[in-house]
């Protein structure tokens, strides 16, 4: 497995389990960071690298599910793989509904865990890319003038230059110049792309 900049966080209060997971994940050349408690994990240095969290359900103090809720509220999007020594179905259902990647009962097959980790990292990477794109679109979008924003909205609605010019009381040439500027600023190669971008923004 590549992506040396990816990191897997492990949170489990049992030292044996922590050590074993660190070794297993390390054996597929992934970076691992272990924490004995959710509180320790929350205090970690934040990273922009793709990451995922392998989390024990039941721990003293804050439980794994508590941590999941807390992360969701704090808008820290991180894919979670739950591990549990109890095959507790209601708990598993709750965790999956709240967006967990996987819920693995202990002891688990190493491939199941590693597959889940891989999937989680991919998903996190994709999410991170999406998030980056979004931010770019939003940045570009804020660079548009009020007139350009007005014209762009009409373009996305599918109006022709002639129709826009008539509606705004401007010349068709002026509209053409604005359209070119808008496409440049938003970095869109076509109207279809522009429509897609605006769709994502909303």
């Amino acid at each position: 497995m590549k992506a040396a900049d990816s990191v897997v966080f492990v949170v489990d209060d049992d030292a044996s389990v922590r050590e074993a997971l660190a070794s297993l994940i390390g054996s597929v050349a992934l970076r691992v960071e272990c924490f004995a408690s959710p509180e320790g994990f929350l205090r970690r240095r934040k990273t922009e690298s793709p990451s995922c969290l392998v989390l024990d359900v039941r721990m003293p103090g804050l439980s794994g599910l508590d941590l999941q809720r807390k992360l969701a509220r704090g808008e820290q999007q991180i894919p979670i793989i739950f591990i549990s020594a109890h095959g507790d179905i209601p708990m598993a259902v709750g965790a999956m509904k709240a967006g967990a990647i996987e819920f693995l009962p202990k002891p688990f097959r190493d491939e199941d865990l590693l597959d889940a980790i891989r999937q989680a990292l991919d998903r996190d990477k994709a999410a991170k890319i999406r998030r980056t794109e979004m931010l770019e679109i939003r940045d570009r979008h804020t660079l548009l003038t009020a007139r350009q924003h007005q014209i762009m909205t009409l373009i996305v609605e599918g109006k022709l230059n002639k129709q826009i010019a008539a509606k705004l009381g401007l010349s068709e040439n002026t509209i053409k110049v604005h359209r070119r500027r808008i496409m440049e600023r938003m970095g869109a190669a076509s109207v279809a792309e522009l429509v897609h971008m605006i769709g994502r923004l909303n």
């Binding site: 389990v17 074993a20 997971l21 591990i83 020594a85 002891p107 097959r109 190493d110």
Partner: peptide, 12 residues
């Protein structure tokens, strides 16, 4: 717990 750790260690 130790059994889970044991299996994971073996795989590792």
């Amino acid at each position: 717990q130790p059994l889970a750790a044991l299996v994971a260690n073996a795989n590792a």
